[in-house]
Amino acid sequence: MSIERAHADHVHEHPTWKQYKWVALVLTVITAVEVWVYYTPFKDSPLFRPTLLAMSAVKFAIVVMYYMHLKYDHAIFRKLFVGPLIIAGCTLVAFLFLFGKVWIG
């Protein structure tokens, strides 16, 4: 848990224009696939939900890492975001269990 000072000489890589456009393309493709599978018979497969959740999680992560440049930034920002995100995620999952939306065993 140490927060060091960011030194001026400690220059981080920064995403470039080209990278931004690649990121946009990937996001668009994933979104297109998401909508596409919605209209295929795969929609009724038991794998539909996990697949869609995974795709959405990937998009989420890409935006946070590149557009919000968390990947390139000071570690403190990662802690400030990921900590609350984990607590929010756990609370959400707990709610699904408590209200009988998800069942184990």
Binding site: L80, F81, I87, A88
Partner: peptide, 14 residues
């Protein structure tokens, strides 16, 4: 702003 965004995670989580 990052602390705020962390907090917003809980709002939208709810």
């Amino acid at each position: 702003i990052w602390a705020f965004i962390g907090s917003e995670c809980m709002l939208f989580g709810s």
